[in-house]
Design a protein around this nucleic acid. Structure first.
Lengths: 341, 341
DNA sequence: GCGACACGCTTAAACGCTTAAGTTCTCTCA
DNA sequence: TGAGAGAACTTAAGCGTTTAAGCGTGTCGC
């Protein structure tokens, strides 16, 4: 049988309350008694049962991470690995646990959120979301549980972290324009995601300001496969395209391999620009020109802020909504278009 | 305030016990009462508090995943993403939660294991380990908690899953020998890991059977950086080397970029073979010849088996120790050595 | 020499649930 | 008719903690 607080109490010849007091290093225990209790704890290898403790203190030292995608999806995209890197770093450091909650693909997002909230398994929640998920966000608010969001949310009074997608794409487009590209295709992410929409908008805006518009658009879903399909379609529909911008690196890599299969050299015949700057993009051939977003920092900040809220620390000054900057990283997948050479 | 079982009981005009019985759909509740209780539950949006339930039933519907590395390390290596893919798929499907437990880099492995066990936060544990970790494994055994291991463990009566590292490396070496390579360098993984040792052994064995031995060895640690350093050193120490085998894909990719920087063309001047077959290896240039191990399947099986143990299902027939096969995947990073052309 | 007050500890209730045991009622059947 | 069985609930103990409140001491000031 597990060793409980009363085993310790018995051995130290005190009441369980006293043991509890030394455990929560509260006042008023004589040094002598404290030593005896500590000794007993050590001898028995006692550790308090987290459930029992959580039940009365109403806290679990666990933060929940809710990502509304399947495991297959989440762990195929290095974006989430980066996010987890930031989150786990903080969570581990702060001596919390991380409860991961994904979808099976069958049940709905709402149910998962409710179960995490209501079952009281966590002290707070980090949720990855898009503007469409305001119903779930509202539930979190209603439940009065601390939470931070990663992604876009237009509801008032929620702490959320995001990246300047619009400006990032704008920069990418500018880069292509400066190189001399005029016929540019675009492969979007899943347009139910606000990220995807913003990226597309930023891209359009840059072209519009140059008096152009997007040559052709393929609606992808952030996955590598959709990047391949997109490039294939754009390139066969429109021979004149000299550059393709993608809403994610993964799609950009997909696009590169599809274009190559069709005989295009990158960047000589076709320039490709991504969005994310996942590690692969620094190693691939060609190295990918892309828009870097500080993904793991996003996770880091979300976790940090959440734990501050949970522990009621002086909430860090600053806006509810924090937007991190993106940055253009020029590598080898973009170049001057053929006709300009 | 949170809605509890007694709120439901009050509303349905029954005792809490009755509510609990319908919750655990136990016998002996009249259809009429059951309907009334269900109605009340719905109206109040009640969900049982997992802590309280866990406390009495002594179960949490949570499985712990213990990886004795830092978040930084874990989420930089696609290996773990693949592993998580398999694990999370099962865990989510079976309606369990996943509690992730990593190291901060400061505290020791043992302490983390003990805290996960003793605090009773989880019903079972999946642990990534090497043969060196037998002390921690013994602790799990002593605690009498269900667990499965991913990695090598020589202790009796533990359920562990592993991959045939020895044979995989053997195949890789054979491949290089068949191509005609005779001077082959090797970059090992972290030799405290059994995987690394076994891979090196398999490699040596193949060479020995051909009457050769490894031209030069660099002791890496599975990371990309160590692959770069390794290749740089091997190539400058020994001009005659025509091929380098690496104990991980990440190191192989590192080796490729280092070799290229030194002016080697891959595979014309130098063949490189990896181990893992991470997604990157199918996209990189050149595509990496490597030994595929079914990583996500490893995670899948570990989780499946663990949950079977937890739920006391008829434990699946089969050995305690299950070894999955590896497989050589020939791509473009290996070729006939120069002098043979 | 006495009340007041700290001090150091214990008692016991509470957290929200499960479940063995007990209770009440109705029905069956010798 | 009355014992027995069974159905459908309720009662209450218990899971392992925390913590407010209580209770003897011993000390101190007056």
């Amino acid at each position: 049988m597990r060793v409980t607080i009363s085993d310790v109490a018995k051995r130290a010849r005190v009441s369980t309350a006293t043991v509890s007091y030394v455990l929560n290093n509260s006042s008023r225990v004589s040094d002598e008694t404290r030593a005896r209790v500590l000794q007993a704890i050590k001898e028995l290898g006692y550790q308090p049962n987290a459930l029992a403790r959580g039940l009365v203190k109403n806290q679990t030292r666990t933060v929940g991470l809710v990502i509304p995608h399947t495991a297959e999806y989440v762990f195929s995209d290095p974006y989430f690995a980066e996010l987890l890197k930031g989150i786990c770093t903080v969570v581990t450091q702060e001596d919390y646990f991380l409860l991961l909650s994904l979808l099976t693909g069958v049940e709905d997002f709402g149910r998962v959120v409710m179960s995490v909230i209501n079952q009281r398994r966590v002290d707070g929640i980090i949720m990855v979301c898009t503007a469409r998920d305001s119903e779930e966000v509202a539930r979190l608010q209603a439940a009065n549980i601390p939470f931070t969001l990663i992604g876009t949310c237009y509801l008032p009074d929620v702490i959320s972290l995001d990246v300047d997608n619009e400006r990032g794409s704008y920069l990418a487009a500018q880069h292509l324009l400066e190189l001399g590209h005029r016929q540019i295709g675009y492969i979007t992410g899943d347009m139910r995601s606000e990220n995807a929409v913003q990226r597309y908008h930023g891209f359009q805006r840059a072209l519009a300001e140059a008096g152009l518009h997007v040559a052709d658009v393929y609606t992808g879903d952030f996955t590598q496969v959709s990047g391949m399909l997109g490039a294939r379609l754009l390139l066969s529909n429109n021979q004149g395209i000299t550059a393709i911008a993608c809403a994610s690196d993964l799609m950009a890599h997909g696009a590169i391999s599809a274009a190559r299969d069709m005989g295009y050299r990158i960047p000589e015949d076709l320039s490709i620009v991504g969005f994310d700057d996942i590690p692969l993009s620094q190693e691939s051939d060609p190295k990918l020109t892309t828009v870097r977003q500080p993904i793991s920092r996003l996770g880091y900040l979300a976790a940090e802020r959440l734990i501050a809220m949970i522990e009621d620390r002086d909430v860090p000054e600053g806006e509810d909504r924090q937007i991190l900057q993106t940055q253009l990283v020029v590598r080898n997948s973009t170049g001057v278009p053929r006709e300009h050479k």
